[in-house]
């Protein structure tokens, strides 16, 4: 039985998904970043978890078609994207362009790469960045995300207008993004786009 624990000290880049034990390690290694990716696409945690689970199951079933010279995390992210497209076709509740997808892909591929190469992961970077956030912004983030308050509740507890809370949250996310990018040294990650993705037509 593979209980989700790291069972070898093997270089993550050499893990073979065709080996069941190593497949389990790859699930451990990549599931959190894929959850962020799927949640950013679906905006719902439970659906994101379903999509990530289905993607890993498909990956396992089709593992014999996987080209071992390729990057497993890119391949599974592609499967997650396919699963999300299926879901999005049936549940089109919001607009999502290919350009949006490119921007999200760009960051998630960097985060996955950092994790796989054994460097700091995005959650560690976020923790450091949260500490550096200005007090008023950190309070808003704490109330809204970590205490689960609604915008109105946060507004009441912090004694500011709801519009100000929304603005603070947005501002905090912008600053956190810049900080996380800096912490993860985005320039040096293994997976890279040659140019920043833009609103190019679909290929």
């Amino acid at each position: 039985m593979y209980l989700g624990k790291a069972i070898t000290e093997k270089d993550p880049s050499l893990l073979d998904p065709k080996n069941p034990a190593e497949f389990a390690e790859l699930v451990n290694l990549h599931h959190r970043e894929l959850l962020i990716y799927a949640r950013a696409l679906t905006q719902e945690t439970n659906i994101a978890r379903d999509i990530v689970q289905e993607a890993f199951i498909v990956a396992y079933e089709k593992v014999n078609t996987f080209d071992v010279t390729r990057d497993f995390s890119t391949w599974v992210r592609g499967i997650v994207r396919n699963k999300w497209r299926e879901w999005y076709r049936k549940n089109k509740r919001y607009e999502f362009t290919d350009s949006d997808l490119s921007l999200i892909e760009y960051d998630v591929s960097a985060w996955q790469s950092e994790r796989a190469t054994g460097n700091s992961n995005v959650f560690e970077a976020l923790e450091l960045c949260l500490e550096r956030l200005p007090e008023n912004l950190r309070e808003a983030i704490q109330a809204f995300y970590y205490e689960g308050q609604s915008g109105d509740e946060a507004s009441e507890s912090l004694g500011v207008a709801p519009a100000a809370i929304r603005k603070r949250l947005q501002r905090a996310r912008t600053l956190l993004k810049e900080c996380v990018d800096g912490k993860l040294g985005k320039e040096g990650h293994a997976l890279s786009f040659d140019r920043p993705p833009s609103s190019n037509p679909k290929i």
């Binding site: 290919d98 350009s99 490119s102 892909e105 786009f193 190019n200 290929i203």
Partner: peptide
């Protein structure tokens, strides 16, 4: 994929 390419 989609509207982009990745150099892997």
């Amino acid at each position: 994929n989609a509207n982009q390419y990745i150099i892997e």
